[in-house]
Design a protein around this nucleic acid. Structure first.
Lengths: 337, 337
DNA sequence: TTGAAAGCGGTACCAG
DNA sequence: CTGGTACCGCTTTCAA
């Protein structure tokens, strides 16, 4: 008998019903106590005492089942292991909490299957909305997203019939392209990524190309890598064996750092021999010597905006897609030829 | 009337009861269909058809209320904006999913209040266990953790009566200290963090000191910073105005990079004028020129181990605390004097 | 094999 | 102000 009680003590969580019994009131009164309804001061104190004694906290799963709001937002990210997403997520997080919402984060680790299934798990979890940091939009994404019946915001990639927050990839690319052309670079090499990432692989790249062409640069090589440091190093290393560009434009700062390392290894000086540009504006870019010239996107604004817009959607207000701006960061890695 | 239907279509999710009706079977049969119970082949097909037609997915909140398992693990991290936590979390995540569990991540952004309240929200959410990436353990932490009645694993900090996974901070520190002493450095400066972070601020530091003393280094300065890049730069800048160490030992790679930048600015060459060491083993440390000499902790192992141990705890098996090893990374930033 | 019915731990409405 | 009662959407006996 003693044993039985011990076990219960260990395993069973106390419920609102029991609290009500101990306090000698009805279940609904306890519920009201927790949700700011009418409770006489005296009753309130009694309930408070019992709750404290039993360390009682209402179960939020049960609550969610019936309550109008869960105050939870599902956030899906391809990676937490990246400067970019970390900045977006941190800002997003902070802003959401300001309104009393809790973001639940699922990391898909660049696994598309998991990304899709996370959308579904969130939709079953009674979150009030979903924010997707996207790297690509496949037809499958469109299918699931549209049948979701839940406010959704997609970040970083364009998508029809969905509210999106995207970077101004084209303009940023174009400005970089122009700048490189204006400083009289002749042999430019573009280190880019696959076209499955439309924003970076197509739009940003097209901006760069247009900028270069407008300023009369005609010799342009293309290198393709994934977003990883190691792959990028290899790609650049191979390229340098047979080519000698006077400028390397890299689609992200991470790629630029890989190129940085390889240029060094090849005995090429930055910027005297080769100019180097990135996109991102990571803090570390500044630690390099020479400091990296790069485009800083306002990822914090992107995160905050995502939070604001999803709340608008939840409130039932109409919302428009948004584009996020950027700033050129003048480092020391580009020089006039 | 039309309107009403439209609204329902938009807002109301279909339920298991309705699926059952449409399929002409009982609710419980549908439930069994989803949970691998007995269902006649013919019935199974009928249910499957209806589910497909209505895009039905059982609601996991309702399910959790009654079911034995939620297959969810709560993970609390002080920051997602750090190389260290990103590595731990990514590995943890991956490992947990291997066993069919979904980690739910809450980022406290170094806010202690939020850290404590996250512990409570998870405990109300029917997660099966909690993993806490800790930066400090206050009495309040102990209080909440002990009354939690839920399997818990604490990472990175020691704590009594709780399963912890910690780095071998002392030994790593000691080895670094010895190494600096053996290479005949005389004027060593330690860039460390507050003692509220016991693991880094006290244990790691003590290891370094012991290592230095064993090898006869007596002149040791102490600098204290937080974990941020900017603060660290300032602290180092001030220090360099009046001091000329021949070695800077930094408690993390991030601090080392800040020091790196400031040493450069001050016109001091690494390693000819000043040797530099860090702890962490971030990829970027390798991009610096000269590459940083550092201690690489196996954060991936830490994450994987956390996943394994929490599952053991959930299964009711006894579990012991664990220490994670490290490797010295020979960079080019330390030189024999 | 199947389905009715009794919960799971709360919330919400309503009469008292 | 308070408490009874009908759910929320799904799981789990248990009898048929």
């Amino acid at each position: 008998m003693m044993k039985r009680i011990k076990e219960d003590d260990r395993m069973t969580k106390i419920t609102m019903k029991e609290i009500a019994e101990f306090a000698g009131v009805g279940k609904s009164t306890v519920s009201r106590y927790f949700n700011g309804g009418y409770v006489k001061e005296e009753t309130r104190l009694r309930i408070e005492a019992v709750c404290r004694e039993y360390h009682y906290q209402p179960n939020s799963v049960a609550k969610t089942l019936k309550a109008r709001h869960s105050y939870q937002i599902g956030v899906i990210t391809p990676s937490i292991d990246s400067r970019t997403s970390a900045r977006v997520l941190t800002a997003l997080d902070e802003q959401l909490r300001l309104s009393g919402y809790t973001p639940l984060l699922i990391n898909t680790n660049h696994n598309e299957i998991r990304e899709l299934s996370s959308l579904e798990s969130f939709s079953r979890m009674n979150v009030e909305g979903i924010i997707l940091l996207a790297t690509q939009i496949t037809p499958e994404h469109e299918r699931i997203l549209h049948k979701l019946r839940l406010p959704v915001i997609v970040l970083a990639q364009e998508m029809a019939n969905v509210v999106t927050i995207t970077l101004n990839d084209y303009e940023a690319g174009r400005e970089v392209g122009q700048r490189i052309g204006q400083t009289h670079h002749q042999a430019v090499c573009l280190l880019g990524v696959s076209e499955t990432d439309k924003a970076v692989g197509i739009t940003r790249k097209q901006g760069i190309l247009d900028g270069l062409q407008e300023t009369g640069v005609s010799s342009i090589d293309f290198l393709e890598t994934d977003f990883s440091f190691e792959t990028s190093r290899q790609v650049v290393r191979e390229y340098l064996k047979t080519h000698r560009p006077d400028c390397l434009i890299c689609a992200t700062d991470n790629l630029a750092m890989a190129a940085f390392k390889e240029l060094h290894s090849a005995g090429l000086r930055i910027p005297q021999d080769v100019s180097l540009v990135g996109f991102g504006g990571y803090d570390v870019s500044e630690v390099l010597t020479p400091a990296l010239t790069t485009v800083r996107f306002d990822y914090e604004l992107e995160g905050r905006t995502a939070a604001e817009l999803i709340l608008e959607l939840i409130a039932g207000n109409p919302v428009e897609s948004v584009k996020i701006g950027y700033t050129m960061i003048e480092g020391e890695s580009v020089i006039e030829r």
